[in-house]
Design a protein around this nucleic acid. Sequence first.
DNA 1: ATGAAAGCGCTAACAG
DNA 2: CTGTTAGCGCTTTCAT
Lengths: 342, 342
Amino acid sequence: MANKVTLKQIAQEVGLSPSSVSLVLNNRPCRISEENRKLIKEVAARNHYVPNQIARSLVMRESRTLGLIVPNIESRFFASLAGSLEKRCREDGYALFITSSGGSADDDLELLRQLVTRGVDGVFLVVGDEFSDDRALREEVSHLPIPAVMVDRAIEGLECDKVMFDHEMGGYMATRYLIEQGHRRIACLVNARRSNTGRKRLAGYERALREVGLPIDARLEFESEYYIPSAYEASEAVLATDATAVFASSDNIALGLLKRLHEMGKSIPGDISVVSYDNSAADVLFEPALTAIEQDPGVLAEHAFGCMSKRLAGRGGRRAEEVVLEPALIVKGSVLELTECS
Amino acid sequence: MANKVTLKQIAQEVGLSPSSVSLVLNNRPCRISEENRKLIKEVAARNHYVPNQIARSLVMRESRTLGLIVPNIESRFFASLAGSLEKRCREDGYALFITSSGGSADDDLELLRQLVTRGVDGVFLVVGDEFSDDRALREEVSHLPIPAVMVDRAIEGLECDKVMFDHEMGGYMATRYLIEQGHRRIACLVNARRSNTGRKRLAGYERALREVGLPIDARLEFESEYYIPSAYEASEAVLATDATAVFASSDNIALGLLKRLHEMGKSIPGDISVVSYDNSAADVLFEPALTAIEQDPGVLAEHAFGCMSKRLAGRGGRRAEEVVLEPALIVKGSVLELTECS
DNA sequence: ATGAAAGCGCTAACAG
DNA sequence: CTGTTAGCGCTTTCAT
């Protein structure tokens, strides 16, 4: 293991002052002789000199590092978001500190502090628990000494930049599409109890029904957490109804439903139609591929970075910005067009 | 956006010296009066004081931060590894800087520098390209001023701690199991061209055949990259052989194969038996679940952290440590027992 | 064309 | 019980 070599040491070896070395190594406009420039660079390279960004941040008061907190890096959607965001940050010379909370507000708070303390210039926050009453997190966020951008999910009523897809619209689009294909008995499987996004998707579902005068039937609304086993459990009841179609409001929920369908030997869309929510995992496997509401993580990342960029450049407005993105309905083959009406 | 508040400011407000405040806020054993302690803590809290870890690292010469480089955070296996490792680090008070390279040696090098420069105390490296001839990366790794642990994959011949599952053994176990179940014509689908892990798994496959005197038939060995579409393509040829079983040597490879099987209306294990490699994704969906070689990312994380810990504590030996873990064969339901022999 | 000096926010002796 | 001092590695102004 080599030793850490410092600017001073390089300076000594070259026989110049640290300032000169600093100037040259940072390619600053300055009048150091071509000869010495070369020498400095050569010595630095030979010694495997790596500038101490820590020291540098301290004096420059910026680290060119951003932080990201996701509830669970093992979820495909967040992993993909993290990947996109990192790429985007790197393009602008920022490193991204990706962290994964356990999904609790406590963890979020802890990680947030960790990041701030480590001198990130800004933080992207995908909160784990939108309904947390933990005032500590809200407090922390609103007193942050650096810009924060909430991504995908938001704590309501918190003055802070936000970038997310329109979940209500997603629920609406999915349901609307099923209606247009002739479905009248449409079940939905949502996480409305514990998730704000779930509630919004449910609201969209109901709006679509209401809009065409279809009844909102509580017996067709099913609850599931964002985990496959939970959806698998709930699906039995869903499939016991007379619904001809179901709106599965998350990727994992769709997977649980699919597993149950597969097990019961039911086929899609022959026996039942399904609209899923950004379900890249299942798409790979299933034939026909699933018609779904898609939220491109790359787009989310792009806008999130945009907000952050503005703030970092001091071009952010006084008020928080709120970016709402339209999801897309991607029609594939999991919905049957019904010609007869019920 | 609140301002950053410093120790000095707190000290001023309290009317004590920065050192006293530092002592108290770090809970150091010292003789500050109970009264003043309380006062300091109260003022710090009221002002949302967050210690500047950057400044602290500079003087303490450690950041209690570790770095992780994975080729692709969007891969389930790496995401899971990252998740486990982060949890493990956090348990010991370390933050983990997760970064995702594009899979090239250039990126690895760049990220490695980024991490070192930002003062991580050590780095976990899952290299993107094991066959890179880029001497720059090897050079960099061997001149690192901090401990490095290579995880899951390794650049051969590099003196550096390594922790990984025994890929050769995995290939062997999978094939051996198929043989024991009565299979004689066993195809394999591996990434031997571009991946060292692939080569080792192939070697294990061949060893198992050789061991029982079965011929090694090049017409049963198929090449696929670690991507679903690649495996999907390759699978057509695999299924055109007279093989009764196939060893799919990675999760994505198994998924591509499954997709093709599903499309052709072939069933598992009725038409063909499959042994897969740590395939949590497909498991969720398929009935029967896939018999597979499993590499627990949590175990990998645990050992990697162990190595790192030792180095950080200065308890590492002079020579690099190499930990090789045994994968496990998890028998589920995708292999048919053949009673007649061919 | 180059160097000296100050200081970023913090900690660690040591001196009161 | 508490304050002073020095210094971590770097950048930056200002002298020379």
